[in-house]
Amino acid sequence: MLLLPAMLLDGALGEPRAIWSRLPHPAVLMGRAVGWADKAFNEGENRRRNGILTMAGLAVGAWALGKVIAELPLGPLWQVLIAAILLAQRSLVEHVQAVADALRLSLNDGRRAVARIVGRDTANMDEPAVARAAIESAAENLSDGVIAPAFWFLIAGLPGLLVYKITNTADSMIGHRTPRHEEFGWAAARFDDLLNWIPARLTAVLIAVSHGWFNPDPIRRDAGLHRSPNAGWPEAAMAVVLDVALSGPRSYHGEKRDFPWVWPEGRREIGPTEIDAACAALWRSWAAFLIIVLLLMAV
């Protein structure tokens, strides 16, 4: 079971700056591949077809690369190392915790810290808005950056992990409803939705169960309020177990958006203490998944 050492290695070391300040991170290389494909093929009259073929090509290439690496001498070792690199548990906790630490210094420090992990406007955020943004990012990225890649590595080995990561990278870069990418990025967005369907719901279960919450009704109720078919599940679970109201109004590119509240019954005057609790929830959920992996090994 190669997932166990990969998770432990990622949890212990994260992403050492001494290495990635000198070498390009695999995720960066994936981003370059997607960027090249966007420039090369996002043109012409049938951009949706081009996007479908591009996403298929990226996925097939990622699968083939995973198979080649798995068959190399010391293949299991390479698979563990690459999986550990592409999991993001420790780095996620560090980035979210940095927001709490900065917010304790000043509101402006908190705004600058949260701007590194979210895409919304941060310049006019108050302290609760900074905290909400950090906690939402923690929940969504636990699913996208930890549980989903671990799930696909467990199911389909390194090829499955690489297919997931290239798809998730493509979705983050071109899966947007903009004039340039609405058609070309359609396949990337839909394939990412498909690959995240089970992991997002599994993440919600891990968050809830690891905190002793066994009532799925409020999580199911609020998960559907999210604009994403998947991200609402871990976000709703995090809101419930921390008893904080998440989502709600925010601004993107100067435009105010009135999103509905997730767990509106929860507290709204929140700050660094609640971010600390979200970081603890990340580790508890990670540990719960680790226990599942151990049980699968025992079976």
Rank of each mutant, 00 (worst) to 15 (best):
V28T: 10
V68G: 12
P24K: 14
R180M: 05
A156T: 09
A189R: 03
A150L: 03
Q97W: 11
R120Q: 12
P234I: 12
W186F: 15
P264T: 10
N196D: 04
A188H: 04
Y252L: 04
W152E: 01
N50W: 15
I52S: 08
A113V: 00
R32E: 13
V93W: 09
L225C: 02
N124G: 15
R267E: 11
I275N: 09
V240Y: 13
G119C: 07
S21L: 09
G11C: 01
A27F: 10
F153T: 04
L161D: 02
V114P: 06
P179E: 03
T54I: 02
I198Q: 12
P16W: 01
L81D: 13
S285V: 06
L74S: 13
A131V: 00
C279E: 01
E43S: 10
M1T: 13
D101H: 14
A223V: 03
G35L: 07
S143Y: 05
I198S: 11
P26A: 15
V146G: 10
V28P: 08
W20K: 10
L29Y: 03
V114S: 05
A139G: 03
K165A: 09
N168T: 07
E183T: 14
A187W: 07
L294V: 05
R17W: 04
L162G: 11
D171C: 02
E235G: 11
W197Y: 09
M55W: 14
F214I: 13
E183D: 15
L74G: 12
L294S: 01
R250P: 15
G175K: 04
L58F: 02
P260F: 06
A280E: 14
S247L: 15
L294G: 00
A139L: 01
W197T: 07
R120F: 12
D222E: 06
A150Q: 02
R132F: 05
L74Y: 10
T122L: 00
D243E: 11
P199H: 01
G145F: 02
D144G: 04
G35E: 05
L154R: 11
A64Y: 03
N42E: 05
I219S: 02
A237D: 08
R201C: 02
V146N: 03
G224A: 13
K165P: 00
G119L: 08
E43D: 11
A88Q: 04
L194I: 15
L87F: 06
P5N: 01
L77V: 12
R220C: 14
Q97K: 08
S143L: 08
A278R: 08
A298K: 10
P260N: 11
A156W: 07
L29A: 10
P149V: 09
A64S: 06
E182S: 13
L142M: 06
P229M: 00
A123Y: 11
A12T: 06
A170W: 04
L194G: 00
D144S: 05
V34C: 00
A281H: 03
S106L: 02
N50D: 15
R104T: 01
L4S: 01
A148T: 05
F214N: 10
G175T: 04
A231S: 14
A187V: 10
L225V: 05
L202N: 06
M30Q: 11
L295H: 08
Y164R: 03
L2Y: 07
R49V: 13
I147M: 01
T122C: 06
W20Q: 08
L195V: 06
L23F: 13
G175Q: 03
A70T: 02
